[in-house]
């Protein structure tokens, strides 16, 4: 899970519309946005949300969600983070927030262990400490906001695959890397689910690694399409692999013969979703995640408990694990030909 976002963040893309105007500018400046009026520092709650880095589409989307929550819920939201995915810079950002005496800090750590001391310091200063998107040290956080449940996510991908290839036939798995633990978790959950629920699905070979590179996924997919001529579906994991797999299917004109389902970002997937070479991209919506983080911080600060099955406006029903700390936002989002343009990450 720690890796999940990082992959998403790295593979993320400029938005179809205005995103092309020099991302270097946004990436280069320490980008801080706040909402709810700075003057009201008195009795209004101030919630700080710290991403891994600012200026990339994924975290811009979550920023929009967090700011929206601030406006709707009447709290100050400070969304600030390092300009690179760097733990040391993130520590500095959090130190600044401590001296500003914010009420809550929610952080997506670049390196969980490196942040533990500064998060302890924040806790000692009476600040509510949470993590979001990626786990921090369990002992210092009061709430951990997760985008998805790994098992649900793994099973969801298989369900989508079956929806597009049918519940019998040969399929293959292309993954980012054989040692990427988050990807392996999703694949493993998906595999045991597929064996039980869809016994007529046949995995033709071991998962095929693509080194997190589009060109490798493309090359490997060309090969498996020839090696297994009866192939009906490909499940591709990591934000890059589905694009390479879809490109191979596209160039061979097999859009209607071979279904491709994968964990890609909607803007990257556009060209492949359009002609059906990628049938559906499955991920989560970072804007919702930003919104949920601020919402839950406010709940805790105002002394209300976060409970399993509670209904969060704009997000839906959330689940809370039995440890009382781990919150899961809900089912993953499907990006298809019809809706991918609505997202800008």
């Amino acid at each position: 899970m720690t890796f999940a976002l990082f992959l998403a963040a790295c593979g993320s893309n400029n938005s179809a519309g205005g995103g092309q105007d020099n991302p270097a500018e946004t990436a280069g400046s320490a980008n801080t946005s706040s909402s709810g009026g700075d003057s009201a520092a008195g009795d209004k709650l101030t919630i700080a949300v710290v991403p891994k880095l600012v200026g990339i589409p994924y975290f811009n989307a979550s920023e929009a969600g967090a700011v929206k929550a601030g406006e709707e819920l009447g709290v100050n939201v400070i969304y600030t983070g390092p300009t690179q995915a760097d733990a040391a810079q993130q520590v500095k950002v959090i130190e600044d927030l401590i001296s500003k005496q914010v009420d809550a800090i929610a952080v997506a750590p670049n390196d969980a262990a490196a942040l533990t001391p500064v998060l302890k310091k924040a806790k000692d200063a009476g600040i509510l400490v949470m993590d979001w998107d990626t786990h921090a040290d369990r002992s210092v956080v009061e709430l951990s906001v997760n985008q998805i449940d790994n098992q649900m996510f793994g099973e969801h991908i298989i369900d989508r695959l079956v929806e597009h290839m049918g519940d019998s036939g040969e399929y293959a798995i292309v993954t980012g890397g054989l040692s990427a633990s988050n990807l392996n978790t999703w694949i493993d959950f998906g595999q045991s689910y597929a064996k039980e629920k869809y016994p007529n699905l046949k995995l033709v070979t071991e998962r095929i690694p693509s080194d997190e590179k589009q060109q490798v996924a493309y090359q490997k997919t060309l090969e498996i399409l020839k090696a297994y001529p009866d192939l009906k579906g490909i499940a591709a994991y990591s934000t890059v692999a589905p694009l390479g797999a879809a490109q191979a299917v596209q160039e061979k004109g097999l859009q209607n013969t071979v279904a491709v389902v994968g964990t890609a970002l909607p803007t990257d997937s556009g060209p492949f979703l359009e002609d059906g070479s990628l049938d559906v991209a499955v991920l989560w919506d970072p804007a919702k995640l930003g919104y949920l983080t601020v919402y839950l911080a406010k709940e805790l600060l105002e002394g209300r408990a976060v409970t399993d099955g509670m209904d969060v406006p704009n997000v839906g029903k959330i689940t809370v694990a039995s440890d009382g700390i781990t919150v899961v936002m809900g089912p993953p989002s499907d990006f298809t030909k019809d809706n991918y343009k609505d997202f800008d990450f």
Binding site: A9, G11, S12, N13, N14, P23, A24, T26, G28, P57
Partner: peptide, 11 residues
């Protein structure tokens, strides 16, 4: 990396 912010260039 700096110029792109790690983001793909498409379009």
């Amino acid at each position: 990396m700096y110029v792109t912010g790690g983001i793909w260039i498409n379009n």
